[in-house]
């Protein structure tokens, strides 16, 4: 097994603790449960798949699940001291960071892409979806946006967990305050919002799925954000100082 694979494997096992897994499964089930409720109570009139998935998955569940996995992948190990056993090996710091981002992103995507698609299909199965839209294509487009968003959020939250020991709190502030409030009030600030990138990717793939401000530039923005977060995380880990000294 490669060094990358070794670190990824141990990270995966550490992240799949019983309580955390259960909590994340519950979070991932929310879009499906709400989708079932909507379907059960469907009334005549258009149901917008894009708006539904945006409100439940993109705004709430995606950043929360990525936050938990992203900050735990490395941040928890730095906090409890287990990371020292990896840090004191002749391994490039970028390898450690990329393995952590890959695992946190993959776990987030593994839970949320199926959840997004199942929830979207439940809505798309209704007869009275928005006229002129293709709800199934829209669902898959948003699913792909969520896939990219999972890795992007994971990279940002892994980087945050190295930069600050309060990664979970700062990440929550980013998701709730920046993306939830400020990015809606400050014109132009949406270009620094992962949520907008997810919407932009979905819109690029299926224009009727969802509206975004960044549009097709979302792919470029997302790529830049992913690389920037990974580089910052690697550089910060290279100068990371262990706590617990006298």
């Amino acid at each position: 097994m490669t060094i990358f694979g070794e670190i990824a494997q141990i990270t995966l096992r550490a992240l799949l603790g019983r309580r955390r897994t259960l909590l994340m499964l519950l979070l991932a089930a929310i879009p499906i449960l709400v989708g079932l409720l909507v379907r059960a109570n469907a009334r005549p009139g258009p149901v917008d798949v894009g708006a539904f998935l945006d409100a439940i998955v993109i705004r709430v569940v995606l950043p929360l699940v990525a936050l938990v996995f992203g900050t735990a992948a490395l941040g928890s190990e730095l906090e409890d001291g287990t990371a020292v056993h990896v840090l004191t090996k002749p391994i490039r710091r970028s390898t450690i960071v990329l393995a952590k981002i890959t695992v946190a992103g993959t776990l987030t995507a593994a839970l949320l892409v199926p959840s997004t698609i199942v929830a979207g299909m439940l809505i798309a199965g209704l007869l009275n979806t928005r006229p002129g839209s293709d709800p199934i294509t829209a669902t898959f487009a948003i699913g792909l946006g969520v896939l990219v968003g999972s890795y992007l959020y994971a990279a940002i939250f892994v980087a945050l967990s190295i930069v600050t020991s309060r990664g979970l709190l700062v990440g929550l502030g980013y998701a709730l305050i920046w993306e939830g409030i400020l990015a809606g009030l400050l014109p132009g600030s949406q270009v620094f919002s992962v949520r907008e990138y997810v919407r932009g990717i979905a819109e690029t793939l299926e224009p009727s799925s969802i509206e975004s401000i960044v549009g097709s530039s979302a792919v470029a923005y997302a790529a830049i954000a992913l690389v920037t977060a990974s580089v910052i995380a690697s550089l910060r880990l290279a100068v990371y100082e262990v706590r617990g000294g006298e």
């Binding site: 096992r13 001291g81 287990t82 004191t88």
Partner: peptide
């Protein structure tokens, strides 16, 4: 080789 004072080792291993 470093043996840190903190006991932290992944408990599941």
């Amino acid at each position: 080789g470093l043996v840190p004072e903190r006991e932290a080792v992944h408990a599941f291993l």
